[in-house]
Design a protein around this nucleic acid. Sequence first.
DNA 1: CCTATGACCGTGA
DNA 2: CTCACGGCCATAG
Length: 110
Amino acid sequence: VTAAGPRAPAGFFSAVYAAVRAIPAGRVATYGQVARVLGKPRGARAVGWALRALAGARERAVPWHRVVAAGGRISLPEGPAAERQRRLLRAEGVRLRQGRVDMGRHGMPA
DNA sequence: CCTATGACCGTGA
DNA sequence: CTCACGGCCATAG
């Protein structure tokens, strides 16, 4: 990732990826939930940052598509990326409602 | 150290 | 329901 300084929480990225990898197929979590699991209740944005930086080779090692915005909305801008995420989710049996994930059915249990 | 940016979130109009 | 605003976190320059 980046030259993590002495106190730089490079582990943050790893922690994010680990948490995301922990999300079982067919289930989705919000950025906020992931942040909460990491002990950063208000670090949802940072989680998004980590996933964004993930784009590339590691994208296949981390099920980034299982992370959506609050309310099951796709946070990615409409386009190829958003469509890809929906496709991957559907492939796992996730039900989409008007482009949004049915959180009541697939949301991660607190 | 300070400013700017972003795959966020909750609240209020 | 949609739109705008402010707050939070981590990173890059």
